[in-house]
């Protein structure tokens, strides 16, 4: 009964945390150049020029490791009928009224939305980022494209940061979740309560 269930392997956890660390660094350095209120964050990276130099390289690391992670979890993020029923009761989920929620697999609809948001926004960030990457690539693109790229980059980053705020909060909110990504396991009760279809699959119960 009390045997923990494996949710993430060591490789999956490492992959996730490389993306997470790169996201935090890219996010802080990017915000520094987005609004003057955040410019002080350049101090974390050794000043303005270093922030400008490092940001795109951090972004490329995030992109590469995210794509590896996305490939691992792609199949598990297709929407099902149960997800739609779960989504219809999102109000109850938020109010912690979980009784009678449909049985869902490894990921619920909220997690899947986050996944697809990242799948769209991270490649957009890479492409728009390359266009404005000084001094290596930006000189090869016309100015009208640079203007589109800065707006796309800011919007995609904003959506991504909002998504990650929700993601981090959900991990804090739903007790017993963080250990899935730190130690790799969740309790049987956690699996049964939040992801019953996955629990059945894992335990055969």
């Amino acid at each position: 009964m009390s045997k923990p269930i494996q949710r993430y392997t060591a490789r999956e956890r490492s992959n996730h945390w490389i993306v997470a660390i790169a996201f935090v660094l890219a996010g802080l350095s990017g915000l520094a150049l987005f609004h003057p209120a955040f410019f002080f964050l350049t101090n974390l990276f050794g000043g303005g020029p270093w922030t400008r130099i490092l940001h795109p390289f951090i972004g490329v690391v995030m992109f590469l490791f995210f794509m590896a992670m996305a490939a691992r979890f792609w199949r598990l993020n297709h929407f099902t009928a149960a997800d739609r029923q779960w989504m219809a009761r999102i109000g109850d989920v938020i109010r912690n009224r979980d009784r009678g929620l449909p049985e869902i697999g490894k990921y619920n609809a909220g997690q899947k939305y986050l996944f697809w948001t990242m799948v769209v926004s991270i490649p957009l960030l890479l492409l728009s980022g390359i266009v404005v990457w000084q001094p290596w690539f930006a000189p090869y693109f016309p100015i009208w494209l640079l203007r589109i790229a800065v707006v796309v980059h800011a919007l995609a980053a904003w959506i991504m940061i909002l998504g990650i705020i929700v993601h981090v909060y959900a991990a804090i909110w739903v007790k017993g979740s963080v250990r899935a990504m730190t130690r790799g396991t969740v309790s049987e009760a956690w699996a049964k309560h939040h992801h019953r279809a996955w629990y059945r699959e894992m335990t055969g119960k």
Partner: peptide
């Protein structure tokens, strides 16, 4: 927070 009741027992 969203807590699962049996969790304390299982830990």
């Amino acid at each position: 927070p969203k807590e699962v009741e049996e969790e304390e027992k299982t830990d």
